[in-house]
């Protein structure tokens, strides 16, 4: 390792060797929680509850200023509503990339179609004649998010929900490189990083690569049983603790959010 970080003794005592999933029953199933410094990658099916799991993962928020939830699909209000509903802390940092993108890029595209269809009005022309530089609307969200996470200090807790946004817009090798960098940072800072990625349309090579970078690989599945849905989480990789590999069926309750089923099913 090129770089070593010296942790304070009191921090080590306070944070401990593992962090909570935010779901006490999962913590139990995983023999205490998730080891500090772990990067978790979860491959998700639509409707499998991974978004809620991601939010719930931030809920322990040992240090709210060091906890970040990056959402590429939801808005601030929507997220706050869910946090409120379950009584999770609202003082963590929330970055809503999807919302920012809509504001900065889609609004511009909408305006462009208006100009193209309806033409310029006098005030548009006057503004155009005074505008000397192109608004740099093509923001490099990938670099920005990477930098934001890299700037977090020891024992950070971050959720990226989800990586699809970046995979669809950026060179995939660049996205993988970003994950690799974040994994190294999490390891060095004993941070916890959870990254959600949809299974739909994911390139198998990228999936393979991300799985090999991750310390823990989860899969969120949903299937129908009769008239019911069954949601489950498969832990298919747990670095240095193969005993933790398992399939956990879970449900969503208004009080606890995501929680593993305690009833054993007979298949």
């Amino acid at each position: 390792m090129n770089k070593q970080y010296t942790f304070k003794k009191e921090d080590e005592e306070f944070f401990g060797g593992v962090g909570s999933f935010g779901v006490p029953k999962f913590d139990l199933e995983m023999h205490g929680g998730v080891p500090r410094g772990f990067t978790m990658v979860s491959f998700t099916d639509t409707g499998s509850g991974s978004e809620l799991f991601g939010k719930q993962f931030t809920s322990p928020a040992e240090e709210s200023e060091n906890t970040l939830y990056v959402s590429t699909n939801e808005g601030q209000q929507e997220i706050a509503r869910v946090f409120n509903k379950y009584g999770w802390p609202l003082d963590i940092s929330v970055r809503t990339i999807g919302e920012e993108y809509n504001k900065e890029v889609l609004e511009k595209e909408l305006l462009a179609s208006r100009y193209r269809l309806e033409g310029f009005r006098l005030e548009d022309i006057q503004r155009l004649a005074q505008t000397r530089f192109v608004d740099e609307t093509h923001q490099d969200y990938l670099t920005e998010v990477t930098n934001e996470i890299m700037s977090l200090g020891p024992y950070f807790r971050v959720v990226i929900d989800n990586l699809d946004f970046f995979l669809q817009r950026e060179d995939n090798t660049k996205v993988v490189a970003m994950v690799r960098m974040l994994q190294a940072h999490a390891q060095m800072m004993r941070g916890l990083l959870l990254i959600n990625i949809s299974n739909d349309g994911l390139n198998p090579t990228i999936k393979q690569e991300l799985s090999s970078i991750a310390d823990m690989v989860l899969s969120f599945k949903v299937r129908t049983i009769g008239t019911d849905f069954e949601t489950s989480m498969i832990v298919s990789k747990f670095r240095n603790a193969p005993e933790n590999l398992k399939i956990l069926v879970f449900r969503v309750t208004p009080a606890e959010g995501i929680t593993p089923e305690t009833v054993e099913r007979i298949s």
């Binding site: 305006l111 100009y115 000397r132 192109v134």
Partner: peptide, 18 residues
């Protein structure tokens, strides 16, 4: 406003022609 100078780059950007 007697002489109006327009940057084509800006015009392209406004028209979504980047």
């Amino acid at each position: 406003g007697l002489i109006n100078v327009f940057d084509m780059d800006v015009l392209y950007s406004w028209l979504g022609l980047e």
